[in-house]
Computed example of a mutant assay.
Amino acid sequence: MARIRTIKPSMFSSLTVSAWPVPVRWTFAGLFTYLDDKGRGLDETRLIKAELYPLDDAMTAKKVEQHLAAIAGSGPLCRYELAGQRYIHVTSWREHQRINRPTPSRIPPCPIHEPDAQGHLNFDEAS
């Protein structure tokens, strides 16, 4: 099933986003189509490159990795690891996306930003 995502006009005037080079901004915008309905996804640059830039031979997995590092370095993207698997999520997903009929995520929640069933954040599991 195709995901339809929107980008709020305020993203273009965001001081955080505007500080990034244009290709990094494009990768960030593309993540909104890569991530699931909870704003989570596998942190695997080859998959992200294949999904966001399938016909762009000049865009490499190494460049995508650099983009993800820049985005995570300034805050709106969190990279975390659980049981040896790396994941990403947009920390402000709910502010930017309203999913009409969300599909449950197959990606485990971030132990840093997403509370468990009891409402507690788990800082010990994050790597």
Rank of each mutant, 00 (worst) to 15 (best):
R5Y: 11
T6F: 11
I7Y: 08
K8W: 11
M11G: 10
F12I: 11
F12A: 14
F12K: 12
S13K: 14
L15R: 15
L15E: 15
T16P: 02
V17P: 00
V17F: 08
S18A: 15
P21I: 02
P23V: 07
P23A: 02
V24W: 01
V24E: 03
R25V: 07
R25N: 06
R25G: 05
W26V: 08
W26M: 10
W26H: 09
T27M: 10
T27A: 14
F28P: 05
F28A: 02
F28M: 11
F28D: 00
A29E: 13
A29H: 13
A29K: 10
G30K: 04
G30S: 02
L35N: 03
L35Y: 02
D36C: 01
K38V: 10
K38D: 14
G39R: 14
G41L: 05
G41V: 08
G41N: 07
L42N: 03
L42E: 05
L42W: 10
L42T: 00
L42P: 10
D43K: 14
D43P: 11
E44D: 13
E44A: 05
T45I: 15
L47F: 10
A50T: 03
E51A: 08
Y53K: 04
Y53W: 07
P54Y: 08
D56I: 02
D57F: 04
M59P: 03
M59S: 06
M59Q: 12
T60P: 03
A61Y: 09
A61L: 06
K62Y: 06
K62F: 07
K63G: 00
V64D: 03
V64P: 00
V64G: 02
E65P: 06
Q66T: 13
H67L: 01
H67C: 11
L68M: 15
A69Y: 13
A70P: 07
A72H: 12
G75A: 00
G75D: 03
G75H: 01
L77D: 07
L77W: 09
C78I: 02
R79Q: 12
R79C: 04
Y80M: 04
E81M: 05
E81W: 06
L82N: 01
A83K: 12
A83L: 09
A83M: 09
Y87K: 01
Y87Q: 07
I88G: 01
I88C: 03
H89C: 04
V90T: 11
V90S: 08
T91E: 08
T91H: 05
S92F: 08
S92E: 10
S92P: 02
E95Q: 15
E95H: 13
H96G: 03
Q97S: 00
Q97K: 09
R98K: 15
R98Q: 15
R98G: 06
R98F: 10
